[in-house]
Nucleic acid binder design. Structure first.
Length: 467
DNA sequence: TTTTGAGTTGTTCGA
DNA sequence: GTCGAACAACTCAAA
């Protein structure tokens, strides 16, 4: 019987795992996770703990099937060489990862070891979603049309293997570092599957069926809360799509059907931005649209500090930033509001915000995070026009009408009535312990419109000259 | 090659 | 209070 290595990176799951499936077809399997200092030294404690607890849960699930997880610390290539020869393996299987770092790392490993990559992170490989002329899409809607057209009607997902044979050798694992558990995002595949089930299971599936409008409400649990699980592959996106499709078919009302489709669209957005990063890695360095390269940012350190700490004086912005600080997660609507505020009210380079989110979000995904920030800034693919600037007060009144979200994360404002909680500066007296607005929205908006317009005009003049 | 229609998530202004 | 237009003309996808 042959031995192969299942090099686990971002596929911490047994259900619907084509990489594991392929490895099992070859023989006995060594499940291996390598803690790469390059990747994990800059990660927040909360995120590291979520990953470690996910690994512990995976080890537990593997042991129930006659296997176990080998954990190693160090540079992947070096570790792989050791384990490969120590276990007399014939192949290494890994789920393909599309970030520039991952691709470079895997190319290097493949030079000296038989590394086989399997597509499992996405529903469709970036190479398969392209325009008829072979070039990549840069607009979401046609991308999503092709994505949906390629989706098989009866989307089949793989069951978890009943048995996972481990080779008859001794391979020492490094000890599992201790990690605090997170009640907001309990780690492990069982937890993820339960959450998916609760979100999509017909006939109730209230959150999914109400998703078209419910996802925008900051004061309600209208979103799936699955993003951290998707990021580490604790839950398969294919499985999520299959569940949503099933719920969509079982929907009793047209509105319910729409809710499920809107959620699937969100999953497609994720693949869209992964595809954008795959074809245009330069988006990590700067604007997708170069006509905005000349924007003169304010980049005020004190303003940036206030934004990070949730002390801007705009309750909805501050509530959201505190939610991020305290939980490692932020509601999607709140991400747009805080991002718009940083870029268009404070006129701070979107890359500063991108980096803060990347450090602090449990679900931080290089591609989706970058895509989201560039969308907000108006510099990205299919982005919001630069003159579309969120008004933090209107957004607050619209998506947190009673102010419950603000009260939850800003206890110092909890005593304010719904009418004034969105604009505490209008109460006449100062609220003790809460700052006055650090900028005036109207004035900031004018300033930003001018800065963006100037950058565009400069660019245009430059282009005219060069012709 | 040229032409045509469309494009995540908003806000403000004036009728 | 409600509604449509303007914001700024642009780029992309597809016929």
């Amino acid at each position: 019987m042959n031995t192969v290595i299942w090099w686990i990176r971002r596929d911490l799951r047994l259900f619907d795992n084509p990489t594991l499936q392929t490895a099992l077809e070859q023989g006995a399997v060594v499940p291996l996770f390598i803690i790469d200092p390059q990747l994990y030294s800059s990660v927040s404690d909360r995120r590291r703990h979520f990953l470690l607890n996910g690994l512990k849960a995976l080890d537990h699930d593997l042991r129930a099937r006659g296997s176990l997880l080998i954990l190693k610390n160090g540079p992947p290539e070096k570790i792989l060489h050791k384990i490969f020869y120590a276990s007399h393996a014939v192949n290494i299987y890994a789920e393909e990862d599309y970030t520039p770092y991952a691709r470079q790392r895997d190319n290097k490993v493949a030079h000296s070891l038989p590394l086989k990559l399997v597509q499992g992170q996405l529903v469709h490989h970036p190479m398969t979603i392209r325009k008829p002329d072979g070039t990549p899409y840069t607009v979401f809607t046609p991308f999503s049309k092709t994505w949906k057209a390629l989706l098989p009607a009866g989307l089949k997902t793989l069951p978890a293997p009943a048995e996972i044979p481990f080779p008859e050798i001794k391979l020492p694992s490094d000890p599992f570092p201790s990690a605090e558990s997170d009640p907001g995002f309990p780690a492990g595949e069982q937890q993820a599957l339960q959450r998916l089930q609760a979100f999509t299971a017909a006939p109730c599936a209230p959150a999914l069926y109400e998703y078209a409008s419910g996802r925008d409400r900051l004061d309600q649990e209208g979103t799936s809360g699955l993003s951290p699980y998707f990021h580490f592959g604790i839950l398969s996106v294919r499985q999520a799509v299959a569940a949503a499709r099933q719920a969509s078919t079982a929907a009793a009302a047209p509105g319910q059907h729409a809710g499920a489709e809107v959620w699937i669209n969100e999953l497609i957005w994720r693949e869209f931005y992964i595809s954008i990063l795959y074809y245009f890695p330069r988006v990590l360095r700067g604007n997708f649209r170069k006509q905005y390269d000349g924007i003169v940012w304010s980049n005020d350190q004190e303003h940036f500090q206030a934004w990070k700490q949730g002390e801007t004086g705009y309750p909805i912005v501050d509530a959201a930033m505190r939610q991020l600080e305290m939980t490692g997660w932020m509601h999607n609507r709140a991400r747009m509001i805080t991002a718009s505020f940083l870029v268009k009210d404070l006129l701070i380079d979107w890359r500063w915000g991108e980096s803060w989110f990347l450090q602090n979000l449990l679900d931080a995904d290089l591609a989706a995070n970058n895509g989201g920030w560039q969308w907000t800034a108006g510099t990205g693919t299919d982005a919001a026009p630069y003159f579309r600037i969120f008004n933090p007060v209107l957004q607050s009144r619209k998506f947190d009408p009673q102010g419950d979200y603000i009260r939850r994360w800003l206890p110092e404002l909890a005593h304010l009535p719904s009418k004034t909680i969105h604009t505490p500066w209008q109460t006449g007296s100062t609220v003790s312990g809460y700052p006055a607005p650090i900028v005036d929205h109207k004035a900031a908006r004018e300033h930003t419109l001018h800065a963006f317009k100037t950058a565009r005009n400069e660019q245009r003049r430059h282009n005219d000259r060069s012709i």
